[in-house]
Design a protein around this nucleic acid. Sequence first.
DNA 1: ATTTTTTGTATCATAATTCGGAACATGGTT
DNA 2: AACCATGTTCCGAATTATGATACAAAAAAT
Lengths: 266, 266
Amino acid sequence: MKSVHLAFEVLEAVAFEPGEIGVSELANKLRTTKGTVFRHLQTLVDRGYLIQNASTQRYRVGARAYLIGRAAAERVDIIAGSQDAMRSLRDETGETVVISSLSNRGNIVMNTLIGKSSLEIGVRVGSVLEPHATAQGKAVLAFDTQGLAKQLRRRGLAGLTPHTVTDIDELERQLEAVRAQGYATAAEEMLLGISALAAPVMDDSGKTVGSIAIVGSIQNIGRQPTPEQIEAVLRAAQRVSWNLGYVGHLPFEPRGGRAPARKAMG
Amino acid sequence: MKSVHLAFEVLEAVAFEPGEIGVSELANKLRTTKGTVFRHLQTLVDRGYLIQNASTQRYRVGARAYLIGRAAAERVDIIAGSQDAMRSLRDETGETVVISSLSNRGNIVMNTLIGKSSLEIGVRVGSVLEPHATAQGKAVLAFDTQGLAKQLRRRGLAGLTPHTVTDIDELERQLEAVRAQGYATAAEEMLLGISALAAPVMDDSGKTVGSIAIVGSIQNIGRQPTPEQIEAVLRAAQRVSWNLGYVGHLPFEPRGGRAPARKAMG
DNA sequence: ATTTTTTGTATCATAATTCGGAACATGGTT
DNA sequence: AACCATGTTCCGAATTATGATACAAAAAAT
């Protein structure tokens, strides 16, 4: 479905462009001809997904794109089902809360709630979370059943900071620990000074569909997070999963039963 | 651009469907064949705009549609520029606030903020506002320069309640009043018991691009709204218009404020 | 001012693409 | 077991999108 794919390429290129963009610029960004891009822009304007600035003749995203996004927000389960849990988690921990969703395009940041610290730490919605260098990535990898971890062996692990796990066997060991604990951490593995704590979110079929995480300064979320932080994240993940129809408990037991791993480490 | 149009028809049909929908149902809703619809569904799933429920094999809107919408929310001026004014207006009046945007598909509800009354009155985002039977419609008609009012002559005015204005000349007289006052009202003209008060929103070129309105019970927003309500709506409209780059004042003078220095947004 | 470059838009023949019908597979219902 | 409705696959026909070329107008450069 070539033309449809191209139409969406055009839509996305314009939508994610800050400001406006013209036909020519788009054409060689998408490696096509001006004529083709022009035609696509026209139909998208027709449909209200884009609008053309009458004076500059350049294009920007339009109202209809916003409307289908709103419709989606009500129906994409992990968005609708995480609203309350996000707020609770933010209030309990004070940290920035990040929801990510696993799609065929990777583990994508879907929603965020900025923490209370005076220095605001955020993550851009829509960005792709590195599987091996983020807490969210590891939380999802550990409980994934489609063999995502296998794919990493071929690709290799890029080192983003001195703390990034670049050895695949070391990563596997960490994933084993994540499975045992029910949560994943990543301290300064993506960006120096920033740390995260994440837990997986499951849907009604028990499949891992995303994660909920807190992200903050390494000063607030330590290499070994506090039991309170862990408990709060696990509880939030459980709540969201239940909202998605997940039955039973996540691999951990948030309350009673086996306490979260809290070994006295050297 | 036939296939692209159809692709968006499919996307919209699925996105605005409450719950999930199947290939066959979609095919005769769009008057096409199953094969064609199926192919389109496939490419949309490919791109992440739709997802297929593995167990029911039916389709629903997906994460990417949400992301596009989020990107649009930041760049569609009237959405981004009305956030604060909406909240203020809601707090000042206690009523439900509605933002609408004028597009080639009509005057569309883009965003709402539910009022404080215990009986919640809302308007569905995405719905089309009747030009002649809503305060928002009249506010836009009165200040429109593209001859939207002319088009109504051909179409005629459908009576939705006993209070709907169905005479085109009477409507013209009302529009004249709207131009003089800067605001429009519609008491029980769309739905008995419900009343609204709206003011137009202008962009940097001075064109009317939408409206901001309060909607509520006829008990709270009377046939002749209070000066406080009128003042609040007018001030909100002025604020939003300024945020869109509109220079100078709307046709009224809210309270002797002056326009801020023109500043590019984004 | 005048040329040069770059922009958005229009046209058109070719070729690749999408379409639609029919056939197949599968699961649920009668 | 037969039936019905569903999602999916296949393939020839022809509609449809493509990209080269051309044009107008606005910037940029001379």
